[in-house]
Amino acid sequence: MMILITNNQRVAETFGDNIDLHFMPEKTYQEILLYARDRIHEGYKLLSHPLSGSVKPNETPFKSILISEKQQTLDYDSLVIIEDSLATVRKFNNNKITPKWTESILDDFRVIDLSLIKGAIEGNQ
């Protein structure tokens, strides 16, 4: 079963049946990537790209990532992708921190994040 890591309420509400949901609304975008990175070190494999979407990491607070069930060995490709993605996130955060958005804009970001991960889940479940 795929594991879905997210801090997005809309994603958590949409998926959750047929998927192992790790919903952590308190985590930031970067913390979601760090959580995924730690799982990769434990043997989980990355299934969706951590930098999905053109909305920038210092723009949207929301992120959803798919990983596999635990494998026997470390997946090096996954590790490279998540570390490169984290480097990109840090670069953007050093440039400028995420603004404090209004609730209606936050919800638009949730909708975009949901749309990005939905295509990945529905095409591959």
Binding site: L47, S48, S52, G53, L66, G119, A120, N124
Partner: peptide
Amino acid sequence: ENVYLADK
């Protein structure tokens, strides 16, 4: 350019 790595 899909989100899912296997698609890539």
